[in-house]
């Protein structure tokens, strides 16, 4: 997700479109990305965090979280 202090023009465009479609009451929209990785059980959380930090996200402008789900 773009960091809170980073202006998110894409999210703003979505937010501006909602009232035009009749959806009221949405104050703010922020747009991010989700990656789904299929990994071996041997890949631990620390490795996933390194993957997120070094490639999937740019920590200068984006916050990230890792969530593990069973297939």
């Amino acid at each position: 997700m773009p960091k809170q202090e980073i202006l998110d023009p894409q999210g703003q465009a979505v937010a501006n479109a909602l009232p035009r479609l009749g959806f009221e009451g949405v104050g703010e929209v922020r747009q991010g990305k989700r990656f789904e990785l299929e990994v071996d059980d041997a890949v631990d959380d620390a490795t996933l965090a390194r993957i997120a930090e070094t490639l999937l996200a740019n920590p200068v402008i984006e916050d990230w979280t890792v969530r593990r789900a069973d297939a």
Partner: peptide, 17 residues
């Protein structure tokens, strides 16, 4: 160069898209 860490900061989507 920013992604490589040679320069600080990042380039984000243009305001106005």
């Amino acid at each position: 160069l920013c992604e490589s860490g040679l320069l600080p900061g990042a380039l984000h989507r243009n305001v106005g898209l």
